[in-house]
Amino acid sequence: MGLAEVTKEEIKFSDKLLARIAVLKAHFPKGKHKSALLTVLHEVQDEHNNWLSVPVMDKVAEVLGILPIEVYEVATFYTMYNQQPVGKYMFEFCRTSCCCLRGAEDLIEYTCNKLGVEEGQVTADGLFSVKTTECLGACGYAPMLQLGDYYHEFLTPEKMDKLIDVCRVGNVEFYSKV
């Protein structure tokens, strides 16, 4: 990816992102702007191919005026922050009990076979990755997956085929709008 070799100085956040960070910081009392860290990391990750490299995290620390370690310890604790490059379209399947009762395991197998990857892997073209996650709060609409900011629910192999097709042509809702 090359990103890992770049230095913090070479990382540039867009004006839009910086403006958004300023808004988020302003939600907290003076001196407590570290509170914005989790939300900021989501926004930063969205602008950096859905993962957080060390230089990107260092840049976050600089922008928020906190130590790099304060960013690392948070980024490594929460599962939604990716420390490694991921596929452009990362299918995050819920694998917890309620989804399994409704065929989640079959669907994960089906998707892995279709894409020729195992759980946690990225396809050779970098387009897709399959990940399993713990309960996403969609137990009644199982089986389901998360893609970007959105949930895809009541999935079947046919719906999965369609979803993969629309991803291939880049015609899928991904980030929700501010």
């Binding site: 907290f28 989790l38 939300t39 990391l41 948070v74 929460y78 922050y81």
Partner: peptide, 9 residues
């Protein structure tokens, strides 16, 4: 204000 977590039960 609304603020968010990042995947931690």
């Amino acid at each position: 204000h609304v603020t968010c977590g990042a995947g931690a039960y």
